[in-house]
C-alpha cells in the first residue's frame, strides 16, 4: 500500500472521528489545527487506525505522535515489515 493511500485512509479516520468532514487534513496536521481534537479523540483515532490496518501501536510509537504524518509513517513502516 502506498504512503498516499495510507494517508488518505488515515485522513478519513481523523475527519470521521472528529466529526469534521470538511477539515483539511495533511501530513503536517496536528491536534492543535482541528477544534475538538483532544486526548480522548486521539485515542479513538489510534484505535481506529489499528483496526483499519490490523496493527497494534507500541507505547513508544504513541508517544512519538505529533502529526498525521507521524502516524502515516508508523503505519507504513509496520505494513512494510
Amino acid at each position: 500500500m502506498t504512503a498516499e493511500r495510507i494517508e488518505d485512509r488515515i485522513a478519513a479516520i481523523v475527519r470521521e472521528t472528529l466529526g469534521a468532514p470538511d477539515a483539511p487534513v495533511t501530513e503536517a496536521t496536528t491536534a492543535r489545527d482541528i477544534p475538538g481534537w483532544d486526548s480522548v479523540k486521539m485515542v479513538e483515532i489510534i484505535l481506529r487506525t489499528e483496526e483499519e490496518f490490523g496493527i497494534t501501536l507500541r507505547s513508544r510509537e504513541v508517544d512519538s505522535l505529533r502529526s498525521v504524518g507521524d502516524l502515516v509513517r508508523i503505519v507504513a513502516g509496520r505494513l512494510a515489515t
Binding site: 480522548v40 485515542v43 479513538e44 484505535l47 507505547s59 504513541v62
Partner: peptide, 12 residues
C-alpha cells in the same frame, strides 16, 4: 467510547 478508550490506556 470509554469501553474502547480505557482498556487502551490501561495497557499503556
Amino acid at each position: 467510547q470509554l469501553a474502547r478508550v480505557l482498556p487502551f490506556l490501561v495497557q499503556r
